[in-house]
Structure formats: structure tokens, C-alpha cells
Amino acid sequence: MKTDANLQDGILSVRLTGDLIGSPDSQQLLQTVDQHLGDDAVKLCSVDLSNVRYVNSSGIGVLVSLLTKFRSRGGELVLINPAEHPRKMLALTKLTSIFTIADDEAAATSLLKNAN
């Protein structure tokens, strides 16, 4: 899995590509987010899942962990356009009621700014 992270206007934007399966790549993702969380101003995050082909239970756990990190800081996390398999996994685990899902980055940014 490839992870790209960008901080702009107080929103951490994370773009994932590949498979989210809880491998060492997932630990790298968590470390990347933790580095940005060192700045107290970062409380909002969007995670683009449009290029994630496959997610397993460990990958779902990583997403829940990220959500918990931001909500415990009084912030929010929005998932952007999950591909078919991740969307099915979120529905199967009933996490669509917990996560906010946006169609694109502009919608995610709007949701996050209104949540703050």
C-alpha cells in the first residue's frame, strides 16, 4: 500500500493506493498520521479510499483506529469515495453508520469544515 499525506488549512488529507490489509504498510500509515497529530492544530482528516482495491479486517481496524484518534481530540475523519470492496466491507461491518463518507475531496473538505 502506498500512503500520501498532505496538511493544508488544518486538514490532514491522506490518499491510499493498493490493499489495506494490516501489513507493515498500515503501521507506516499510523505513524505518518501520528507525526501530524503532534501539532495540536490538526483535528480534521480525510482519507481517500478510491484507489484501495481490497481491505480486510485488519485494514478496517486501522480505519477505526484513525477515526478514534481524531474524535478523541475533538476532531473528525471523513472517508472519500471508497472503492467497491472497501465500501462492501464497511457496509458488512455496519461501519457506514459510524464513518462519514464523502463522494469527493471537495465534499469531504466541506463536511470537515462544518464539523469543526
Score class of each variant (00 low, 15 high):
I98L: 07
V55A: 02
A115F: 00
N114L: 01
R53I: 08
Y54D: 04
L12H: 01
K113T: 01
L37K: 02
Q31N: 08
A108L: 09
E84I: 04
N51M: 15
V52L: 01
G38Q: 11
R53W: 14
L79I: 10
R15S: 15
K88W: 13
E105K: 03
V52I: 04
R53P: 05
V55C: 02
L30E: 15
T109M: 03
V78T: 11
L20A: 07
G74P: 08
R73D: 06
S50K: 12
A102K: 03
E76M: 14
D19P: 08
K2F: 08
D25T: 05
T100C: 11
G38M: 05
A5H: 03
V42T: 11
K113F: 05
L67H: 15
V62R: 04
Q8I: 03
R15Y: 01
T96H: 11
L66T: 13
H85L: 13
N56Q: 07
D40W: 05
L44T: 03
N56V: 13
L63Y: 12
D4C: 15
K43G: 00
S58E: 13
L67P: 12
A41C: 02
S23H: 11
A102I: 12
I80W: 00
P82Q: 04
V14K: 04
S23C: 09
G61N: 10
A115C: 00
L77W: 08
L12S: 04
G75I: 09
N51W: 15
V42W: 10
K69Y: 00
Q28Y: 02
V64P: 14
I101K: 11
R15C: 12
V14S: 04
K94N: 14
Q28M: 02
L111M: 15
L29R: 08
L12R: 02
G22H: 14
T100Y: 07
V42D: 10
K69S: 09
V62G: 10
S50Q: 08
